[in-house]
Design a binder for these strands. Structure first.
Length: 254
DNA sequence: ATGGCTACGATCCGTAGA
């Protein structure tokens, strides 16, 4: 199974690119974030034409997640169970006995802000729910935009970013708490080029300078990590006309 | 010097992203 995650930053704007990319990259399952579409406007017919079934949980303007799959999607969960939240940030489904959890973790805006506190509460709720979900589903993937660069090597300029949102110690601790459940960062299961990133600011020619962060991740439970054959970032997508500011991450599971 | 893009839903700017 080829599994991917991509923050498309508006599915309406990015649909042509998504369709091209699906044809080229040929993933079996894709987790999408920042669809920015209410479910009534989700382009299910166009994606079906491309060969994908879909589950979605969206809202106008902000947030929004979806999962595309070539195989049927079963057992759909919307939002973190038990965590009241109007923001559409989590969607889970089961494809061929693999539990797929698609996440768009909060941005956090600035350390110490209300949104930062919300981010940490959201991660804590995610961790608690995943603990029970892992007990039910040993083969589990959490894929999405985590809005956390786990280590300094995931940051183009660690000095400039020190203590900032996305790299602050409480955020990194929240990310490590997910790994402590027995999840592995698929990207780090393999040797990777230095300065590998998944997001580059639209401004200041950040992509041209490779001034990015690695904040989009695929986490695998132990049985899936053992079956993982590779994981890479499709950065070429970021160089296309009218790109998302995020590039897809793809993991191959044998 | 906190700028710089992009998307959105509202208008001829504000909010949010990261």
């Amino acid at each position: 199974m080829r599994l991917a995650t991509w923050n498309v930053n508006s599915l309406k704007v990015r649909l042509p690119q998504l369709r091209d990319w699906l044809a080229r990259a040929s993933p079996d399952v894709v987790c999408l974030q920042e669809t920015k579409l209410e479910d009534a406007r989700f382009p299910a017919a166009e994606l079906a034409q491309a060969g994908y079934s879909a589950a979605c949980s969206g809202q106008p303007t902000y947030n929004g997640v979806a999962i595309l799959s070539r195989r049927p999607l079963g057992d759909i969960t919307v939002g973190i169970p038990g965590f009241m939240d109007v923001q559409k940030r989590l969607l889970a489904t089961t494809v061929e006995d693999i539990r797929i959890v698609c996440v768009y973790c909060p941005n956090g805006q600035a350390v110490g802000s209300d949104k930062y506190e919300y981010k940490l509460r959201w991660f804590a709720a995610l961790r608690d729910w995943l603990a029970t979900e892992l007990a039910r589903h040993p083969e589990l993937v959490v894929a999405g935009d985590f809005n956390v660069a786990p280590e300094d090597r995931d940051v183009h300029d660690p000095k400039a970013w020190e203590g900032q949102v996305h790299v602050s110690e409480p955020e990194r601790a929240a990310f490590r708490a997910l790994l402590a459940l027995g999840l592995e960062d698929a990207f780090r299961l393999f040797p990777q080029p230095e300065k590998s990133f998944t997001w580059w600011d639209y401004r200041m020619g950040a992509f041209r300078r490779n001034a990015g962060l690695r904040i989009d991740h695929i986490l695998l439970s132990a049985p899936l990590a053992r079956r993982c054959r590779g994981c890479s970032i499709d950065a070429a997508v970021r160089a296309l006309q009218r790109p998302s500011d995020h590039a897809p991450v793809i993991a191959e599971i044998g």
